[in-house]
């Protein structure tokens, strides 16, 4: 078996008395779509925050592509190829859709200590940005200010920005959050199109989407991994059914 793309080893994060991540170990294989499910408060977003460098774990180790990234700042992780999207839509609201993606491309190209040439006239930024917008179906909305895009479109833009950094792995924090059924379906199609080309860790509440997309699923309860397995195994797991699937929208 190939080395894991992402390896989480005995990760612990406490907030006061609350243990949000409780000795969690998890491996994501290259190319797989790994879904993370669990009830509210299971520590999913906390985990994403630690993986992307926005929270420092109290103990444990995170390895990405064979490199220890536990203490790396967020921006450095992105440059290694670990990109995230946000649960709460987090585009640059004052910028156009195209500017948003162009900034992601700008970050990918290295440092931005270039002070003179106008960035908006630079085809090496604009062309890849347009391509990423096409990939998520936002080509005709390129010049709209992000704040004026619909919620679903902003979520698509999030994915386009994550894609523009050409990451080896995507951390997707509830990409379908707050979407209507039609928008959700479009997002599932979009992510399905990326499957196999990008490794993904997907946090999602929409069970239909999870079971449609994931190669493997980890169930998180109270900061611990209750079970990891294929969708079929997870569906059949008694413990999981009791703890999670049974009580809700299974």
């Amino acid at each position: 078996m190939a080395d894991a793309m992402l390896k989480i080893d005995s990760l612990i994060k406490r907030f006061g008395g609350l243990v949000a991540t409780d000795s969690l170990s998890l491996e994501v294989e290259p190319g797989e779509v790994h879904a993370l499910i669990g009830p509210n408060g299971a520590g999913k977003t906390t985990l994403i925050a630690q993986l992307s460098g926005f929270l420092r774990p109290d103990a444990g180790r995170i390895e990405f592509a064979g490199q220890d990234i536990t203490d790396l700042p967020a921006a450095a992780r992105v440059r290694l190829g670990l990109a995230r999207s946000f649960q709460i839509t987090s585009v640059l609201r004052d910028f156009t859709a195209l500017d948003n993606v162009a900034l992601a491309e700008q970050a990918r190209q290295g440092h931005s200590f270039r002070f003179w040439r106008p960035a908006r006239a630079d085809p090496s930024l604009r062309e890849p940005a347009r391509a990423a917008l096409r990939e998520v179906g936002l080509a005709d909305r390129a010049d709209v200010v992000a704040a004026l895009l619909s919620h679903g479109e902003q979520r698509q833009l999030e994915v386009a920005m994550a894609l523009a950094s050409d990451p080896r792995m995507l951390l997707l924090d509830e990409p379908m959050a707050g979407m209507g059924p039609e928008e959700s379906a479009r997002m599932v199609e979009l992510l399905r199109g990326l499957r196999g080309r990008r490794t993904m860790l997907l946090v999602e509440h929409d069970m239909d989407a999870v079971f449609a997309l994931a190669d493997r699923i980890t169930v998180l309860v109270y900061g611990r991994a209750l079970a990891t397995g294929t969708p079929a195994e997870i569906r059949a797991n008694r413990e999981v059914r009791v703890a999670y699937l049974g009580e809700g929208d299974g």
Partner: peptide, 17 residues
């Protein structure tokens, strides 16, 4: 553009690298 991005949404800019 990087500077104006940090004004708009600093956390997002960090997440972009």
């Amino acid at each position: 553009m990087a500077l104006r991005g940090t004004k708009s949404n600093d956390a997002r800019m960090q997440a972009l690298g």
